[in-house]
C-alpha cells in the first residue's frame, strides 16, 4: 500500500547528477573497448585466435585500434624489458582517459620464467597501474576473453580505476620509473 503521507521530493545535488552521468558513460565504455595491442612478448600469439572467427572478440564490441590516442585498453602481452617499459610508459601517458591496462601472461605479474633475467622487470604494477591480470604461460583464448569480461565487470562496479590511481599516486609511480629507468637521456644515433 502506498503511503499517502507527504514526502519531500528528493533533490539531486551536483555530485549525484555527475555520478549518474558517469554510470551512463560507463555503459558505453564497457561495451566498446578498443585495444591497443602492444605486443611485447609471446602472449601476443593468443590474440589472433581470440579476434578471428573461433572466439570473435568483436561480439563484445572490442576491436584493435591503430594508435594510442584512439584506444581504451593498453594490452601488455608478455614480458617487458627495460627498453620496452620506457616506450610502454610513453604510450600509456598518451592515451586519452579513462584508460585501462590489461596484462597478459605471468611475466608482468611476477617475472614468470624471466624472473632472474637482467633486462626484464618483475612487476608491472610498480610502474603503471594494472586493472586486470590474465595469468598463464601463455593464457589460452578463453582466459583472455574471460579477462576482458572481468574488466567489463570492473568498469561496471567501479573497481577498474587504475587511471585514477595513477593520478593520485603520480609521485610514487614516477619515483619507481626513475629508479629503474634512470634519467631520460638516450645516447644513441637514433635519438640525436
Amino acid at each position: 500500500m502506498i503511503s499517502t503521507k507527504y514526502t519531500e521530493k528528493k533533490k539531486f545535488n551536483k555530485q549525484e547528477i555527475d555520478r549518474k552521468w558517469w554510470e551512463v558513460g560507463d555503459y558505453f565504455r564497457r561495451n566498446s573497448l578498443w585495444l591497443l595491442m602492444y605486443c611485447t612478448g609471446c602472449c601476443a600469439i593468443e590474440l589472433p585466435p581470440s579476434m578471428t572467427s573461433a572466439y570473435d572478440m568483436e561480439r563484445l564490441g572490442m576491436g584493435p585500434m591503430a594508435t594510442p590516442r584512439q584506444a581504451d585498453i593498453l594490452l601488455v602481452s608478455g614480458y617487458l624489458s627495460l627498453k620496452t617499459l620506457r616506450r610502454l610508459i610513453y604510450t600509456y601517458e598518451q592515451m586519452s582517459e579513462p584508460r585501462y591496462v590489461v596484462a597478459l601472461g605471468s611475466c608482468p605479474i611476477n617475472g614468470g620464467i624471466y624472473h632472474d633475467s637482467h633486462p626484464v622487470i618483475n612487476q608491472l604494477d610498480q610502474y603503471i597501474p594494472v586493472d586486470t591480470y590474465v595469468a598463464g604461460c601463455m593464457p589460452n583464448p578463453e582466459s583472455v576473453l574471460n579477462g576482458f569480461v572481468d574488466l567489463m565487470e570492473g568498469i561496471k562496479n567501479k573497481t577498474a580505476n587504475g587511471w585514477k590511481k595513477y593520478h593520485k599516486n603520480y609521485d610514487w609511480y614516477k619515483k619507481n620509473q626513475f629508479d629503474v629507468l634512470g634519467e631520460v637521456v638516450i645516447d644513441d644515433e637514433f635519438h640525436q
Partner: peptide, 23 residues
C-alpha cells in the same frame, strides 16, 4: 649500470633481485 651482462661472473639473479622488486 653494472659490469657487462653476458660475462660469466655477472650474476643476473642478484642484479634482478637488487634492481626489480619481486612480488
Amino acid at each position: 649500470d653494472d659490469i657487462p651482462p653476458l660475462r660469466k661472473d655477472f650474476d643476473p639473479r642478484a642484479y634482478s633481485d637488487r634492481k626489480y622488486p619481486s612480488r
